[in-house]
């Protein structure tokens, strides 16, 4: 039932992912929130190179709590993805292939996912302590001046996520609600 997937996502992985699939991801995830997204899009618009190559990569929308002594990271659950909607189509054009967050995306993002053959996954919001256990390494790779919103590179093992939007137009939020709606 649960698919194990090595990051970065391959074309074949993406083709095989369907809304509602539950996956365990292992490999590299980049972490960025709105402030970092704004800067990345500004850089792209100016024709500058990004601090990390988004081509083929997966971005996790997250702002961790501080790491207590002896720990790699603090609580590390997803944040609301809608705040990144304005920047996402531009990053998809630049080759981004996966995003992990929580909550519904805009119509524009959903269309861009189909067009650029990329996927949107959700992690369980409010499960930051559980998710932190899957993170083996965390380092700041860009915009250190943004503090808790700096871009991080994580190495994860069996990071749990659920496919929300696939490349075929599938949308778990829409389908799930429809299936269980009694109103």
């Amino acid at each position: 039932m649960t698919k194990k997937i090595a990051l970065p996502l391959t074309e074949k992985d993406i083709e095989n992912l369907k809304s509602g699939d539950s996956v365990l991801l292992s490999g590299v995830l980049y972490v960025a929130r709105d402030a970092a997204h704004r800067r990345m899009v500004e850089s792209l618009d100016k024709g500058e190179t990004l601090p990390f190559d988004v081509k083929g990569q997966t971005i996790y929308y997250m702002g961790p709590s501080p790491a207590p002594p002896g720990k790699i990271i603090g609580s590390a659950g997803p944040t609301t993805s809608a705040r990144m909607d304005a920047y996402t189509p531009r990053l998809l054009t630049a080759g981004l292939k996966g995003m992990i967050g929580k909550g519904v995306r805009s119509l524009e993002v959903k269309e861009a996912l189909k067009k650029h053959q990329a996927v949107y996954l959700a992690a369980v919001g409010g499960a930051g302590a559980l998710i932190s256990r899957t993170i083996g390494k965390s380092e700041v790779v860009a915009y250190p001046d943004l503090g808790p919103e700096a871009v991080l590179k994580l190495e994860v093992k069996d990071f749990p996520a659920t496919v929300i939007n696939d490349i075929y137009g599938g949308d778990l939020y829409v389908e799930g609600k429809k299936r269980y709606n009694l109103a």
């Binding site: 539950s22 369980v124 499960a127 930051g128 302590a129 299936r179």
Partner: peptide, 28 residues
């Protein structure tokens, strides 16, 4: 719902990890 149950399992397990390790239940 199986997906709903899986989410609740994660939430319940998260609570015991947070309490045991004294790290926040949620990063927010």
């Amino acid at each position: 719902s199986p997906a709903g149950r899986q989410a609740l399992d994660a939430i319940i397990e998260n609570a015991s990890i947070a309490a045991e390790e004294k790290i926040p239940l949620c990063q927010d």
